[in-house]
Simulated scan of single mutants.
Amino acid sequence: MVVTKITKNKEYPKMVKGKWMIFVVILVIVPSLVLAQKKCLYVSTTTGFAPLASDPIVNKFVEWGLDLTYINTTEAALYFEEDYAPFDFVFVDEVVPSSSLEPINLLEGHIIPLLTTENYAPRATILGYLTNQQAVNIAAEAVKIHNGDHPLAAGFATGSEVVINDGAGANEDLIPNLPEIDFIPIAESKSWPGLYVAYGVDAGGTTVNGVPITHRGAVLGFHENGYSAINENGFKLLKAAIDWITEDLSAVEKVSNAVPETWLLAQNYPNPFNPATTIEFQLEKSAHTTLSVYNSQGQLMTALVDEDLNAGTHRVTFDAENYSSGVYFYSIQSGDFSHTRKMILMR
């Protein structure tokens, strides 16, 4: 990961000629911004589609510095895995008819991190989140936050009621639904308890059709008719979703190839920690290994490891920059070995 640190209020010697000063600034600053820019493949409806400047979501994407490439569903149906490689995530606009997505079979299982504002039942079915469910469109209302310590909750507290859309009462502002796969509940509908307007789907599971989910996905059920009424709370959830699905997860580091005499999940260090900590573990045999982090309510926060690993000693870093202070648990499953430990994030 490339981290660019900008220091404010630092005085530099004055240049004699303004042109030279401008030239130096361009050389130093612009490359850093380009390196940090996330590339979004924006799937919409029209060939060569460039959304109107009045579109509030596009405005926010531009404001957040995203590098946008626009394609329609006909073009997306011709994409192969390597065509998605240059992008950090794909955004599927709510305006896209669900039937137009059926030929794009690489979206099921998340060939790359995926974000959509469409939560209508046919779209969720195509993505493999559910088999068949009645669609629900509702007027703007406050949503109830679940899992407030998860980054997807954008800092909103568990149990709080948050207005994310200022619609004037039309029945096409928000779209709640209930996935039939493992998911991370974030924002629940008040008028339809048990249905969720916002949720995440972590990598490592499978769709209802058994397709492995290889990258993260996030859903925010904003109806296109309610786009203009999305407020700052709604955009906070949208930004948090982009940050979460594109998070640079730490790779597993092989510490030693020596085969240990026993399985072990060590205590993280440092502990308490802020914001990052190291977790080390030993595998007596080669096996598919998962290492997951849960909050104090037992809700899955993230999967740090989900891959086949050889016998030996391994370590991984957990970066909790976007997490709330509190007690968390990390759990390993490797072959027949499983163990759980507690760690404390203290701001």
Rank of each mutant, 00 (worst) to 15 (best):
Y330L: 06
S325N: 13
Q37R: 13
A140V: 07
G109P: 04
T131Q: 13
V43A: 07
L300G: 08
E108F: 00
T262G: 01
Y42E: 01
T262A: 11
L27P: 00
T74Q: 13
S228E: 04
K14E: 14
T317L: 08
G18R: 11
K254Y: 03
M346G: 09
D83R: 03
Y269S: 08
G326V: 06
I26R: 06
W64L: 13
L304R: 10
G221N: 03
I71F: 02
Y330A: 08
G48V: 02
T117D: 13
E261C: 02
D173G: 09
G205N: 01
K10Q: 15
P103N: 07
G335Y: 14
N147Q: 01
L264K: 10
V143Y: 15
N268M: 01
A229Q: 10
E280Q: 14
T246L: 11
I184V: 14
I242V: 15
P185E: 10
G65Y: 05
I279T: 01
D173A: 15
E94D: 05
V34E: 11
A187N: 10
D149W: 05
P272M: 06
K5I: 12
I181N: 07
A53C: 03
G194P: 04
E161A: 07
V255N: 00
W192V: 08
D308Q: 12
S98P: 02
I344H: 03
E118H: 02
A187H: 11
Y199I: 01
F23I: 05
P151D: 03
S44A: 09
L220P: 12
S54T: 15
S160M: 03
D166T: 09
L300W: 06
V162S: 13
L238H: 02
K39D: 06
Q134S: 12
G65W: 07
T69Y: 12
P103F: 00
T278W: 09
Y120I: 04
Q297L: 12
G234V: 10
F183R: 05
